[in-house]
């Protein structure tokens, strides 16, 4: 059966980047305004899901040739690594550090190790969601 997805496919190409950009924004903004690793990760997976609906699984796998299970592992490593990093400074596991760096032209930059931890959460969420969707979708 051949279906005509032209409208969906065209719209997806546009919306996809908007969603991905928004998810990245929401991931970084999460420390101050609603958002964070969970929502960011879910939104990114939502964007990929949209891509899957508009095109087919094979094509998406060609565009994004990730092994999502590795992404889960990487995310877990980030989260545990950030936590374990605190041990090096003789502070309890998962103690975070933060500080400000003054950059020329760009101005103040606020840095926080919690972002690294949140990045781990982000990666795990994207990895898990995409593993689930890909394996179910790829069945048969």
């Amino acid at each position: 059966m051949k279906t005509n997805d032209l409208i969906l496919q065209t719209a997806t190409k546009l919306i996809l980047f908007l969603i991905v950009l928004f998810s990245i924004y929401i991931f970084f903004a999460g420390h101050y305004t609603p958002g964070g690793g969970f929502v960011g990760g879910l939104l990114t997976s939502g964007a990929i899901l949209l891509l899957l609906l508009a095109f087919d699984l094979k094509m998406v796998q060609n565009i994004l040739p990730f092994n999502y299970l590795y992404m889960v592992a990487l995310g877990l490593l980030f989260a545990i690594g950030t936590g374990a990093g605190a041990l090096l400074f003789n502070t309890p596991f998962l103690t975070h550090a933060f500080g400000d760096i003054h950059l020329p032209v760009l101005g103040e930059l606020h840095l926080h190790t919690a972002t690294l931890f949140d990045l781990g959460v982000y990666l795990v969420v994207v990895g898990v969601t995409m593993t689930i969707i890909q394996t179910i979708g790829g069945d048969e």
């Binding site: 999460g30 101050y32 964070g36 989260a79 936590g83 596991f93 975070h96 931890f117 969420v125």
Partner: peptide, 25 residues
């Protein structure tokens, strides 16, 4: 941080979150 929920998740109660993503994995 400014977002209390997020700060609780990643900082104050980071252990919960860490195990949570482990469960997800």
């Amino acid at each position: 941080g400014g977002n209390m929920v997020n700060v609780i998740l990643v900082d104050f109660r980071g252990f919960d979150t860490m195990f949570e993503i482990t469960v997800l994995g």
